[in-house]
Amino acid sequence: MLKITNLHANIEDKEILKGINLEINPGEVHAIMGPNGSGKSTLSSVIAGKEEYEMTEGEIIFEGGDLTELDPEERSHKGIFLSFQYPVEIPGVSVTNFMKASLNAHRKANGQEDMPANEMLKMIREKSELLEMDRKFLSRSLNQGFSGGEKKRNEIFQMAMLNPKLAILDETDSGLDIDALKIVANGVNKLKSKDNAVLVITHYQRLLDYIVPDFVHVMLDGKIVKSGTKELAYELEERGYDWIKQEQL
């Protein structure tokens, strides 16, 4: 589904990604772990198409097509979803209206008419229940005054609405208490299928107790330096990253 080969990327002439290789197949859950500043969030932003990063080498192939020249919205239409670490606030635009704009933009890109209003509302209701969201939540301005947990739940709600092929969860566990973490993880798990894939980016092993990865990758200084199964995550939790750094030397 996603094949990243020798990916190098800069921001303002500073190289952040220094040759990433990663392959994700349908049905798989991958986790990328690593210390602050190792380039994890950069990788997720580059996959989603953030323009301030410049790809200098390598390629990102998604569903057989090269993503390099595509705008963020086109990547979204193709089925890539990024759950943001810091979702932005949009005053005056309700969660419901934002979702309508987003979903109908996807439909338009696929040559479909706008979704009928009643169908849309039904779907919004269904998916918000999955995330145990209060009905009132849906008429509030997008992310404005939301708690950290509400913002992340809202991200996964959007994921449920858009039903992406590849969901990238960037530090989705940060700022969540254990109850919110369970709800979010439960939401992600219910959306899992053999046809889609999840890439979890996290500092901590905690989230991986609830979203269980098939593969765990360790990122250090812009490269994936070690890959393994979920046991690797436990080892990292216990021993930190220094031993991997040592292995590298």
């Binding site: 198409g49 323009e51 979204s76 239409h77 990024l82 933009a105 996807h106 858009l162």
Partner: peptide, 9 residues
Amino acid sequence: FYLRARGIP
């Protein structure tokens, strides 16, 4: 970027 990443042109 946030809005575009949600498919909004």
